[in-house]
């Protein structure tokens, strides 16, 4: 029932997003197929909108999958080392294959993200004290360490600032021809949807899954691969977007409970809405300049996250 409202909200925000910008575009311009207006739309506004929606859906579903697999509400690509591993992968490709095209960079980044997330899942199984908070803490420590490896190499190759700008989540650079890679996340989301029940069972633990005749390892590997691939795609096209995978699934589970099958679509919609909203906010606050989305998401996300934390602790 509420899904409908989310959809309406998404469409509304999409329209707003299309018509906001330095270049004023009115509905008449579009209807008259005015040349300059159409060009702005096709080259910049529509790519931006689509990439926002895809990234929002992808990151929030990644978070949902990770939380389901680790059975921990505070795990997400940012708190499990996935994003930082993807970053290390980008750095690696910048150093070793500076001339490679984006697809190659993305693939390298994906391999690193996958390795980092699998390492996290491996460590997760060894943790005896499954305190809700200790698991994300370990994940963040791991992320910091991978980050420190990155900064070691970035420093040696004088890439610190360019890595910073690469990682800074930003949709203002998204134009036609530079975002299409993100379309790959669409089939990934569909695969994730197909596997929801398996993820739920795997989340109950290895023995439980075995008892139900499920191949635990392959399900975890599929889940983690989806997450790593989406993360690498998003990082390479728009940069790091903190908190999204953490906050959205948690907010949705407050209203919809923990049934993955029921949650997955609202989570995707809410992720897109949240990202669109943050983007619009960043574009109008100091108009005609823009605040990068990583900052608006960072601020909104940390406020929501703290709220969730205190609420849970209450």
């Amino acid at each position: 029932m509420k899904k409908r409202y989310l959809l309406v909200l998404l469409i509304l925000l999409s329209i707003i997003s299309l018509f906001i910008g330095v270049r004023k575009i009115s509905l008449q311009d579009i209807l008259r197929f005015e040349d300059a207006a159409m060009r702005t739309m096709v080259l910049s506004r529509i790519p931006r909108l689509i990439s926002l929606i895809l990234a929002g859906m992808g990151m929030s579903i990644s978070g949902l999958i990770m939380q389901q697999l680790s059975q921990n509400k505070f795990v997400s690509p940012t708190t499990a080392g996935t994003i930082d591993s993807a970053k290390l992968g980008i750095l690696f490709s910048l150093i070793v294959f500076p001339a490679a095209n984006t697809i190659v960079k993305m693939l390298i980044s994906f391999v690193f993200a996958l390795a980092g997330s699998l390492l996290f899942m491996f460590i997760l199984r060894k943790i005896k004290m499954k305190n809700t908070v200790i698991i994300p803490l370990i994940g963040i420590m791991m992320a910091n360490i991978i980050g420190s490896v990155s900064s070691f190499f970035a420093y040696r190759y004088n890439l610190t600032q360019s890595l910073s700008s690469w990682m800074q989540g930003n949709f203002s650079m998204v134009i036609k021809g530079r975002y299409e890679l993100l379309y790959i996340s669409l089939p990934l989301v569909l695969i994730a949807y197909h596997y929801t029940n398996q993820f739920t069972i795997a989340g109950m633990g290895e023995e439980f899954a075995f008892n139900l005749g499920l191949n635990y390892n392959s399900v975890v590997n599929i889940g983690i691969s989806i997450v790593a691939l989406i993360s690498a795609l998003v990082v390479i096209t728009v940069g790091r977007i903190p908190f999204l995978g953490l906050v959205i699934p948690n907010l949705i589970s407050i209203y919809y409970g923990d049934n993955l099958r029921k949650n997955i679509i609202p989570t995707a919609l809410a992720g897109a809405i949240f990202l669109l909203f943050s983007d619009i906010l960043g574009r109008i606050v100091i108009y005609p300049y823009e605040i990068p989305i990583s900052l608006t998401v960072g601020i909104l996300g940390s406020i929501i996250f703290l709220y969730l934390l205190f609420r849970r602790n209450h």
Partner: peptide, 17 residues
């Protein structure tokens, strides 16, 4: 610690900006 970490991430996004 978790609150500290969130604040840390928040500071980080500000300084990266």
């Amino acid at each position: 610690l978790l609150v500290g970490l969130v604040m840390g991430t928040f500071f980080q996004s500000l300084s990266t900006f």
